[in-house]
């Protein structure tokens, strides 16, 4: 079961954050096809946000074909975004954590790491396109 968290200062609209977190969970394989998303009431009672916001997020996900709402029973995952097997993800995650420790020892803070990752991704994309 997925648990949402909200970052009110991120500048990203609440409903978008929910959409992104669902997609992230799908990619990581935290949720799979057939799993039920938390009900609007559950999300709202946990995060204290507007129910309309959650409804909107779920509607968007439904429009994108990732989930389907079953009348009276809840919203369920209908499609997957996960690429590669979970096992690879675990391996990658462990490697990544090791890299993070190195970066930390090298004196990089969180912002610098994020900047490094963003820049590297951009350049890779640019190279691919070119």
């Amino acid at each position: 079961m997925i648990e949402f968290h909200l970052d009110p200062r991120s500048g990203v609209a609440t409903y978008l954050q929910i959409v992104q977190q669902v997609k992230e969970a799908l990619r990581l394989g935290t949720i799979e096809v057939g799993d039920q998303l938390p009900t609007v009431r559950e999300v709202v009672a946990d995060l204290a946000i507007n129910p309309n916001t959650v409804a909107k997020a779920y509607r968007d996900l439904e429009r994108e074909g990732l989930v389907v709402a079953r009348q009276g029973r809840g919203t369920f995952v209908s499609n997957t975004l996960a690429r590669g097997s979970l096992r690879h993800h675990e391996q990658l995650r462990a490697d990544f954590e090791r890299w993070l420790t190195e970066a930390d020892e090298a004196g990089l803070d969180e912002e610098s790491i994020k900047a490094l990752v963003s820049a590297t991704l951009r350049e890779r994309l640019a190279r691919r396109v070119a």
């Binding site: 009431r41 709202v44 009672a45 204290a48 946000i49 129910p51």
Partner: peptide
């Protein structure tokens, strides 16, 4: 305050 809001939103969702 947060708990109040949680209860409120739950009531509104219902």
């Amino acid at each position: 305050g947060r708990e109040f809001l949680q209860l409120l939103m739950d009531g509104v969702a219902e």
